[in-house]
Design a protein around this nucleic acid. Structure first.
Length: 618
DNA sequence: CTTCTCACG
DNA sequence: ACGTACGTGAGAAGT
């Protein structure tokens, strides 16, 4: 046994590194004596839980506010058994991102399943996000352990992540290679000390977060609710999705050929890098085109898709417009960049993220956006192209299964109607009217045209996003003056939207620029964009409508079928013979009343590939 | 690291 | 006083 000690915020701590099997006896005695919440953390060979061999889990750490134990699982079966038994015996656990990462690690590498682990585990990532959901870039604290330790425990607490990176550098490993996490000796003093500090800090952080949540009046029920969401999403990550490698390789070749073909065309016009906006802009000007649109920063001429499509005379669905002679360079740049992006961003990631069984395990961050929305990375399966089935066809349901996708119908508009109490909108939704058609009839009269309906829909979306007439006009193609007039009528028909916006803004100012969502989330606003409160309220409540639906699905035993949450949709892998029945059950879980407004959903049953739901045959 | 672009809801 | 499109992840180029 090697002993460590130190002090945080003036309170001393002691740490114990179990070096020999006999050291584990004292650890197990300590485990048996624990009655309170113990912080758990792991050190691993990186982040690829499913693609690394049995040596992936290196250290398992357990700690209270003043005491830490490090179990080097890699030393052999006795250590492994001790860590496993501790996880099973300890009555209450906590940790930082412990459900989304360490829980998956012990599920896969120690056989302590998420179903057993999660119900007794708190996660300080959740409390951190409930206190401030903003990233550092957005002016928040972020959710990393370091800023939280510094703010809530001890400003001089070491940055263990940064500190280890430094140690790795001294040992000759670059940060990017990740080799430090694999090769640093299990008993390296800094590695061990920081492993201990992480659980001591994590243990103290839970107490500090709970006190702060109480102090600020953040709704406590959100903590347990978010833990359930986090557990369900971890179970979806564990299930993963199968990659059709044969099909993926074929499409890789198709896209490669497309890239080569159009790179050659671009080169004829002097463009050697189609991803260089500066090169593309000057080459287009040399061909006699006039560019007027500026980029967001105003520093350069924009050559984004909308500009290039106009020059190439194609719509966003590649249909000829017929308003001019297509510019061949614009066409080549569009085609080459799209094919290149699809190849590298999607196909490459599918192949690289695959585990030995051929499955990807998308990482679901359950509280990532500042509105509480989820995000998914590695791969970013929320953002696969939807206008073409090519990319989604790479992903398959389980053998013998088909994909079922269930969408909420216009959920953000319904949430707006509910939260803002928009009388006529609510009445129309209760009556089962086509909302945008109904709005068009109010704004343009009973003889409204499809173009009128499109404008009405655009204005509705503009209200949810806080957009103005210029943007709605740009999106719908209607003249700005017409849109302006229609928006004025819209406001008089649905006056409660503006009233709610004013009320939310006033209340947010009283709360220190924080708006409280319908479910009790505290969402900080930016002083110069207070109008965004309407969007924050709608987006955040819509996220919780999905969260509530997920809870319904778990209660009905549907969780094993679920694969992904996608904002207003869930994707499920279901045995072919039960697909229709399960689709209807998921629909029911996604159907309920929100403050007098019906929230409804619609299921689609596809084939084995995800692409089958996007126009492909299988 | 920032800027630009593009994929999604 | 007035009006403001919202939220993400990811890759390539260039500083």
């Amino acid at each position: 046994m090697k002993e460590y000690s130190g002090s945080l915020a003036g309170v001393p701590w002691r740490g114990y590194l179990c070096e020999r099997p006999e050291d584990l006896n004292r650890f197990m005695e300590w485990v048996e004596a624990q009655r309170g919440t113990v912080c758990f953390d792991t050190e691993t060979q990186g982040l690829k839980i499913y693609s690394t061999g049995p040596g992936f889990l290196r250290l398992a750490q357990f700690g209270t506010a003043t005491e830490a134990w490090v179990i080097p699982v890699e030393l052999g079966p006795a250590f492994r058994t001790a860590a496993t038994r501790a996880l099973r015996r300890l009555p209450s656990l906590t940790g930082h991102n412990v459900i989304g990462f360490d829980g998956l690690v012990v599920d896969e590498h120690l056989g302590v399943k998420l179903e057993e682990f999660c119900p007794k585990t708190q996660d300080t990532m959740i409390t951190a996000k409930l206190l401030d959901p903003r990233s550092p870039e957005a002016g928040g604290m972020g959710a990393k352990l370091k800023p939280h330790s510094a703010y809530f425990i001890d400003p001089s607490a070491p940055d263990t992540e940064e500190g280890l990176t430094e140690v790795f550098r001294e040992l000759g490993y670059t940060k990017k290679s990740g080799l430090g996490w694999i090769h640093i000796p299990w008993n390296h003093p800094t590695y061990v000390e920081y492993a201990m500090l992480d659980v001591i800090l994590g243990s103290r952080l839970l107490v500090a977060h709970m006190a702060e949540i109480e102090r600020r009046g953040v709704r406590r029920a959100l903590i347990d609710y978010e833990r359930e969401i986090s557990r369900m999403c971890a179970i979806m990550t564990r299930a993963g999705m199968y990659v059709d490698d044969e099909y993926t390789a074929t499409q890789y070749g198709v896209l490669d050929a497309e890239v080569s073909k159009y790179l050659a065309v671009a080169e004829r016009y002097g463009v050697t890098s189609v991803n260089s906006p500066a090169q593309v802009a000057s080459a287009l000007q040399a061909m006699g085109e006039t560019l007027t649109k500026k980029t967001k920063s105003g520093k350069s001429l924009s050559v984004d898709g909308s500009v290039l499509r106009r020059l190439a005379d194609v719509t966003d669905k590649w249909e000829r417009i017929g308003s001019r002679t297509p510019n061949p360079l614009a066409n080549a740049v569009l085609r080459a960049t799209r094919a290149g992006k699809w190849k590298t961003t999607y196909l490459d990631t599918f192949l690289h993220e695959r585990d030995p069984r051929g499955y990807i395990h998308p990482n679901i961050q359950t509280l990532e956006a500042r509105t509480g929305r989820m995000s998914i990375t590695k791969p970013a399966v929320q953002t696969l192209p939807s206008g073409d089935s090519m990319i989604r066809r790479c992903l398959l349901a389980e053998p013998g299964h088909v994909f079922v996708s269930v969408d909420f119908q216009a959920v953000e508009m319904r949430v707006l109607a509910a939260l803002a109490g928009v009388k006529k909108m609510k009445a129309a939704l209760i009556a089962g009217e086509d909302l945008h058609g109904y709005t068009a009839s109010l704004v343009f009269g009973p003889d409204y045209t499809p173009a009128h309906r499109k404008v009405a829909k655009g204005i509705g979306l503009g209200k949810v996003y806080g957009g103005g007439a210029d943007h709605v006009a740009g999106q719908t193609g209607a003249p700005v003056a017409d849109v302006r007039r229609a928006m004025a009528t819209y406001d008089s028909v649905y006056p409660e939207i503006k009233q709610a916006s004013n009320r939310w803004q006033r209340e947010a100012r009283q709360q220190g620029l924080v708006t409280v969502s319908a479910t009790g989330r505290h969402l900080p606003l930016d002083r110069e964009r207070m109008y965004a409160v309407v969007n924050y309220q709608c987006q955040s409540a819509a996220r919780d409508v999905l969260g509530q639906a997920l809870i319904h699905m778990d209660e009905k035993g549907l969780l094993p079928f679920l694969r992904l949450p996608i904002h207003d949709e869930v994707l499920a892998s279901v045995p072919r013979g039960e697909a229709e029945e399960v689709a209807r059950e998921i629909e029911r879980c996604m159907t309920f009343d929100l403050m007098g407004v019906p929230i409804i959903s619609e299921a689609e049953v596809g084939g084995r590939s995800w692409g089958s739901l996007y126009g492909a045959d299988f």
